[in-house]
């Protein structure tokens, strides 16, 4: 699914968290939002998901204007920084949630749901853990459950907020490789937020550098790294010219 964003602005009170952001994301692209903490990356992602509403600007999914649509109509797959798993449900029920709340006419049978959940558990390499509760899993495992839960409803876009931020270096690298592989297989349009440039350059097709709520540069990792950006970008990426 392609995403078109036109001059998006979001203020929290008098504070502008996102300022006049325009962006086009092509179908199947993997795009990274890279910027320092507090630059508005999460806010931008939440606006795209419909969890936050912009003061100005519009959003189009595949050409359809979704600006006024609520998050449960947009159904963007969202993976939260802190996973936000349902702690009172088993891993199975966590992943099945989106399928269970589907409108009756579109709801799968219990067998179909079971099939899908078990196959997703296999994809995330957690087969056999379906009856555990989130607190009984490690951080990396929870991250993958959050991922599977988002994928279960077959979203047309995947939004990931610092997906590896809370994990240690080794798990981080493994998951990063896994995500790249997953994306190469499925070509699901994906946006992810990070403040780690290695991660952005390693995983993304294009990198959007954000500071103080505005886009500083958009380009492929090569373009961005080659040093064509403004003073902020050069400073942020520590490029010496």
């Amino acid at each position: 699914m392609s995403i078109e964003i036109t001059s998006l602005t979001k203020n929290f009170g008098a504070f502008p968290a996102v300022k006049d952001v325009s962006l086009h994301i092509k179908t199947g692209e993997m795009v990274a939002f890279l910027g320092p903490s507090g630059s508005g990356k999460t806010t931008l992602l939440r606006i795209i998901a419909g969890l936050e509403f912009a003061n100005h600007g519009e959003i189009f999914f595949d050409g359809e204007n979704v600006t006024m649509k609520s998050a449960n109509e947009r159904k963007a797959g969202f993976v939260f920084q802190s996973y936000a798993l349902f702690n009172h449900m088993t891993i199975f029920e966590n992943i099945a949630f989106g399928l269970r709340v589907a409108r009756r006419s579109k709801r799968l049978t219990n067998e179909k749901i079971r099939e899908r959940v078990l196959s997703l558990l296999e994809t995330i390499q957690l087969s056999g853990l379906e009856n555990r509760f989130p607190v009984q899993l490690s951080g990396g495992q929870r991250q993958r459950v959050a991922f599977a839960r988002a994928l279960a409803v077959e979203p047309r876009v995947l939004l990931l907020d610092e997906p590896f931020g809370a994990l240690d270096a080794k798990v981080r690298r493994e998951l990063r490789a896994w995500l790249t592989e997953f994306h190469n297989k499925t070509h699901l349009t994906s946006l992810f937020v990070t403040h780690d440039q290695d991660e952005a350059f390693d995983v993304a097709d294009r990198v959007v550098i954000i500071d103080k709520g505005t886009i500083q540069q958009i380009g492929t990792p090569e373009e961005v790294r080659s040093g064509g950006g403004n003073a902020f970008v050069r400073d942020f990426l520590a490029i010496d010219i």
Partner: peptide
């Protein structure tokens, strides 16, 4: 309210969120 937000992005409606997420919590 992150769990409620997660439920929202998964397509749940207000009443479903109340019954399945908020009340159990």
């Amino acid at each position: 309210c992150e769990e409620e937000e997660a439920a929202l992005t998964l397509g749940a409606g207000g009443f479903q969120i109340l019954r399945r997420i908020t009340l159990p919590k």
